[in-house]
Design a protein around this nucleic acid. Structure first.
Lengths: 248, 248
DNA sequence: TATAACGATGTTGTATACAGAAAGCCGCAT
DNA sequence: ATGCGGCTTTCTGTATACAACATCGTTATA
């Protein structure tokens, strides 16, 4: 974990990270072609690694091929986001079911429980500040990653990682938007109940229950999506610039 | 094959298709590095489109990055294939549920029914020949594609297409292996019952039922996987060379 | 004999040159 | 004013050159 570890990153990775950030920030108009030469100037890499990054981002779903050549940033309807969340919930449900059916070692389960306890501590602080939310997000991500590990399925891991690469489909996508909402505390309490319940289900080998819980858990994000879309906090969710509002 | 009919396809597509075929045929040993220069000679394209194809195949899951650079063909355990089939079933189940909940237009439903009828005709021929199976495979693929369309969800379409890009996870992956098995006729009859039942469920807006049916439908592939792995017909399934048998 | 250092060779990652095609622009005719 | 045609410019897709790096065989030494 040395600090200079980032210095030796390849040009391709550099291009990928910068480009993704650029796209998510909305700096590139959705639908219009991303000029490679312009990006070369902007990112300081040559066209070769840049094009590699473009191919990867296309597979990721963030950009799409233009029939006449090149790529353009995609725009997402509310429904696309809804469906992406539903897909994530379904796959996480599958992960939970497999974990329950195949059995999770006590050691791994203990690790997940520790994670939940750490979240408990944050929620227990009462009225949560912005920093509290900043503490929450990585822990929440960690919980979801550990749950995925419990299924011990490499194909599923790949699929979930891909499904959550769209930022608004990820478990933490709308958490930050939540922070500014009055309902936030209540939603987190419910989410935490889900976390605890799914562990219980897995421990008891209750596959169907575990699956249902994770599905319902993802549906909290649906609600957050609705709330965020109808409030000013939308700007807090990464990639918000790519969301095409129904009104126009 | 050496005809000029395909002249308009790009070098990248050419490289992608040829490489995929090479990998699936097992011509490239799993785990060992795919030499770009060797592929350049073999496929007749330059390194640039070849590398683009490699990146795409890596996202597809057919090859993996080697830490020291380059890519290698992946090997798949029986469990990986099992899980991939389970993932497909889960996602197709989601598609069926969404189609049921959101409603499918009578016109689209009629198209799916036509497809089922066409399959009926094939199965009705009695003892099926190899050509009968050759007729069956594209129709079966068409059914699954149409079902996916019924959900009218672009994110889900992308995800399913990706999940089925692994040949042994695709709906038609083990059908050809099935052909040589005595149980084949019975399995097809059951599969067809599933096809009919899921349409009925969607038509009646029975989301949960539609979902369960598609999950169970994919589990037929599990059985086929077991049978194929324990018989000589394994060679018929595309990508069989990538399957690492438990024994060895 | 085993091991470590070293050099030769081949490899990938990156930059760049080039050709063909798309897109925009200007002028012209209606 | 508007649509069309041809031209120019710019772009992408592809090939290739080059440098840093990994790999492997060889040799010398303990």
């Amino acid at each position: 974990m040395s600090g200079e570890g980032e210095r030796t990153q390849s040009q391709t990775v550099k291009a990928l990270l910068s480009l993704r950030e650029l796209i998510l920030s909305g700096a590139l108009g959705a639908g219009e072609r991303i000029s490679e030469l312009a990006m070369v100037d902007r990112l300081g890499v040559s066209r070769t690694p840049l094009r590699t990054a473009l191919v990867k981002l296309e597979q990721e779903g963030l950009i799409e091929e233009i029939p006449s050549g090149g790529y353009a940033a995609r725009a997402f309807e509310e429904r696309d986001i809804f469906d992406s969340i539903e897909i994530r919930g379904t796959l996480e449900g599958l992960a939970a079911r497999l974990a329950a059916e195949r059995g999770a070692s006590p050691m791994r389960l203990a690790g997940v429980k520790d994670c939940v306890s750490a979240i408990d501590e944050i929620i227990g602080r009462g009225a949560m500040s912005a920093e509290d939310f900043a503490d929450y997000v990585p822990l929440n991500a960690r919980f979801h990653a550990m749950l995925l590990d419990l299924a011990q399925s490499e194909p599923l891991r790949r699929e979930v990682e891909r499904a959550t690469s769209l930022p608004f489909a990820s478990p933490s996508g709308f958490v930050l938007a939540q922070a500014s909402l009055p309902e936030s505390q209540r939603i987190l309490v419910i989410a935490q109940e889900h976390h605890r319940a799914v562990i219980d289900a897995i421990q008891n080998r209750e596959g169907t229950r575990a699956e249902s819980i994770m599905r319902e858990h993802a549906r909290l994000a649906h609600r957050n999506l609705q709330l965020a879309l109808r409030s000013a906090s939308l700007a807090l969710v990464p990639g918000a610039a790519l969301i095409r509002r129904a009104g126009g």
